[in-house]
Write a protein that binds this DNA or RNA. Sequence first.
DNA 1: ACATTTTTAGGACAACGTCCAAATTTATTT
DNA 2: AAATAAATTTGGACGTTGTCCTAAAAATGT
Lengths: 205, 205
Amino acid sequence: MTTREIILNRALELFNLRGIENVGIRELATDLNIRPGNITYYFPKKEDILVELGKQLSELNSATIVKLENPSMTDFMERYRQVFNNHYEYRCLFLSFVSQMQQNKKLSENYGKVEKSRLEDFRKILNKLVEAGYLDTSVTEDDIEQLVSFLSLVARFWISESTVSYKKLSKKQAINHYLNLIGFVFSKHATIIGKKQINSFLSGL
Amino acid sequence: MTTREIILNRALELFNLRGIENVGIRELATDLNIRPGNITYYFPKKEDILVELGKQLSELNSATIVKLENPSMTDFMERYRQVFNNHYEYRCLFLSFVSQMQQNKKLSENYGKVEKSRLEDFRKILNKLVEAGYLDTSVTEDDIEQLVSFLSLVARFWISESTVSYKKLSKKQAINHYLNLIGFVFSKHATIIGKKQINSFLSGL
DNA sequence: ACATTTTTAGGACAACGTCCAAATTTATTT
DNA sequence: AAATAAATTTGGACGTTGTCCTAAAAATGT
């Protein structure tokens, strides 16, 4: 492992553990038994570490969100379960979501691009779920926009809320909580078979 | 206006404008043409300013959320519109929600108490909406829990998301967006008359 | 008028992100 | 193998931050 990778790995660990703002370059350096200026050599600004971690998360999600030909309702839920797991591994980014997006221009740019295409993907998936008879045909384009809005809100902030309000919950419990919420909202727009898949997915958590 | 009040008012303005973390005690002092130590006299720690602002928001919300005997679906939506307006006036708190809750013990305590009773209120309101025939009788206690979960997620993070993703939207537009989302979710659990009220409320925005 | 309390001022401290020049190690070329 | 070049590491510096502390000033009460 290169020095650069060592720094990135340990930074992610410490950031997840104690928050990005609460872990200084000096502390990270001490922890790694190197000098602060050495970190600065690989990452001139602290921001640059987070840009890299953001890319890692993005790639991780790209790897899990493989495009399916004929997605089922189960596939859809399972996909979100995996995305949530990925998010958790990089939870420090979400816990400082707003401040990072405001301060870190590059991270913000990267996230903006990825998220845009990601939402587009989910829009398509939802349309396919309608075509395939998992979501009601009464679901309009406008409804799909609302569902996508809902999904993006949950995806962005579930970690923040669970950290603040559901501290006692384990990772799995927290993820299940928000999967249940998604299932709850979606089942109201699902067909009978769609509802069945949601319920069996949720009860299998 | 006392020095203390002057500090609080201007602090809220600057915090809303540029973010809590980006406005230092020295800058606030310079802006007010007083000395930093003077602010420290009234608020020994920066945190203490935010504790006070948190109380102000809490009182503002308590004033707008008057308990209704027979709430209609319209009342419910109107209530949220007002809460969102209040939130916007204190948006700095929500934009630094997680970090404040983690660092600011007192603010966290206060928020915890208020939010707990607030959620309890909304639980009761939803039950009343069922009784009064605005929400389906098929709505179970479990459904109400999910709806409350949904509401609290939106309430906590709508400002964060709109700041990051919907920068161009005006205050009113942003609020309308999330009211629409709430209406969208709730209309699926509403009776015919409930749906009517939601739709007429949303179209009147 | 004096004495006491409240308020203001201004300088100090450690920690932070960042920067830079020198020293050291590693790689490349002769 | 020696000399040169490049990459890496070091250690100290700068300005800014929140916080703290002591003394001066103003306001208040007796």
